[in-house]
């Protein structure tokens, strides 16, 4: 009787492998005293520009490194090099998000001693990365003023995972008629747990507060 139907109980997370790897990553980062932040946003919200500027300002304060994920090309890694921090590009070959094992491999490739801060620039996407823990200590979700005030309402799942929401490109907010109050109200409604900071990499506005957040959050590692 080989045709007997069996019901096999599994009861485990579908992404259990990724979750296990992420926990191992987090334990390793914490043991080494490295604060790890996962930066998420839509394509074109200014992650790379902001991070290049951030690395420049972190020079001499915290030894930092970046892992950057993209579907293809290493353009972003090239843009972030030359600011005193090693950068490893992960090309996902079409995968819409980074996974914990990719971060582990990239981290091993970095091989930097005395690292205090690791910034992961995730693939530009506000949907897929939300379900994949990478082993980070904090998540930063970025939203540029050109994307519309209702973006948090459209992508609530990812905003709900944010420790910090960065509103970027605020130097052009007025020119494009950005309704700041509405945007803030939307962020607070969807992501009441998150701190909110407004920044402009171009003019430097808000960059000090962002840097303070990065340095002060180090205690989370």
């Amino acid at each position: 009787m080989s045709d007997v139907r069996k019901i096999i109980a599994v009861e485990q997370a579908v992404l259990a492998k990724n979750e296990k790897m992420a926990e191992a990553n987090r334990a390793e980062f914490s043991a080494k005293g490295i604060f790890v932040v996962n930066v998420l946003s839509s394509p074109g919200s200014g992650k790379t520009e902001l991070l290049a500027n951030t690395l420049e300002r972190l020079k001499g304060r915290v030894q930092s490194a970046v892992i950057v994920g993209d579907l293809a090309t290493d353009n972003d890694a090239q843009r972030m090099r030359g600011h005193g921090a090693p950068v490893v590009q992960v090309t996902t070959d079409g995968l819409c998000h980074l996974e914990a094992n990719m971060v582990k491999a990239a981290f091993d490739e970095l091989g930097v001693a005395g690292l205090g801060l690791l910034i992961i620039e995730n693939v530009g996407n506000l949907v897929c990365p939300s379900s994949h823990d990478l082993g980070e200590h904090a998540r930063v979700v970025m939203l540029s003023v050109t994307e519309g005030e209702d973006k948090p309402m459209k992508y609530p799942v990812i905003f709900k995972t944010a420790n910090l929401v960065l509103v970027s490109k605020i130097d052009i907010a007025e020119a494009i008629g950005f309704d700041r109050d509405l945007a803030m109200a939307n962020i607070r409604a969807v992501a009441p747990q998150a701190q909110i900071l407004e920044v402009s990499a171009r003019t430097g506005q808000g960059m000090d507060a962002w840097l303070d957040w990065l340095i002060e959050s180090h205690g989370l590692a």
């Binding site: 080989s2 045709d3 007997v4 139907r5 069996k6 019901i7 096999i8 109980a9 599994v10 009861e11 485990q12 997370a13 579908v14």
Partner: peptide
């Protein structure tokens, strides 16, 4: 979560 699998 993957709860269960039915198989023969």
């Amino acid at each position: 979560d993957l709860m269960s699998v039915e198989a023969i």
